[in-house]
């Protein structure tokens, strides 16, 4: 379960997020919608510690966390970026294995087993040795999801997961999100696509632009 309490964020004096409160049970999916420039990405970046909050607290499973301390907060919050941000010089399997072996110092053999299970689950069997440039957009996105999942995050965040995909792949990512939900993964999905948001969400928040 994740709670966001009184989150505020301004950029050079301009308030983007004002006293936001979010509470999300384990296994729930939260959709964040809103107009362009409304602060959806900013909210996600605050939760994942890529921006510092001006004020506010984040609690995961009744424990306060500082998401900007990525090395301590290891594996708490996973991120699937809009542009995926896969490492182009590493194979799919290497993309997955890098952080667990380097950050959580797990044994290579164990990580590889987990990584392969996750890849299989996401329909990426046989892609282990390929490089990101050899994959389609949808496959890259699933690798990005897999890379976040091997760190066993408590919350998984997506920024505009449908934006880089063909329309017919929209249903496929929705299916993936719902499958992960069934496994108990708590997910936060930023999107400007209302229809998509409603399809996956247990909870829907609209970020309005604050003038």
């Amino acid at each position: 379960m994740i709670q966001i309490k009184n989150l505020s964020k301004a950029f050079s004096g301009k308030k983007i997020l004002d006293n936001m409160n979010i509470s999300l049970e384990k296994g729930q999916v939260l959709s964040i919608v809103g107009p362009s420039g409304g602060g959806k990405t900013t909210l996600l970046r605050c939760i994942s510690g890529l921006e510092t909050m001006d004020s506010g607290e984040i609690w995961i499973d009744e424990q306060q966390v500082d998401p900007t301390k990525h090395q301590e907060a290891t594996s708490q919050i996973g991120v699937v970026f809009q542009e995926f941000n896969l490492f182009p010089h590493l194979t799919v399997l290497e993309n997955l294995m890098l952080a667990p072996t380097l950050v959580t110092k797990k044994a290579k053999e164990d990580v590889e087993i987990t990584a392969n299970q996750i890849l299989a689950k996401l329909g990426l069997k046989g892609k282990e040795k390929q490089y990101p440039f050899e994959l389609s957009g949808g496959q890259k996105q699933r690798v990005a999801i897999a890379r976040a999942l091997v760190m066993h995050p408590k919350v998984l965040c997506y920024d505009e997961p449908t934006s880089a995909l063909d329309p017919d792949l929209r249903d496929s990512i929705a299916k993936t999100i719902l499958e992960l939900k069934d496994e108990g993964m708590t997910q936060i999905v930023v999107t400007h696509d209302h229809e998509f948001a409603k399809k996956i969400a247990d909870q829907l928040i609209e970020v309005a632009s604050i003038q």
Partner: peptide, 30 residues
Amino acid sequence: ISKGQYEGAKVLGLSKWQTARKIVIPQVVK
């Protein structure tokens, strides 16, 4: 090297040095 590469490494918990060694330098060399 795009900002996304650094952020990708950051959210996975890689330290600055690990990011330089495993992500940035190999791509820079190319």
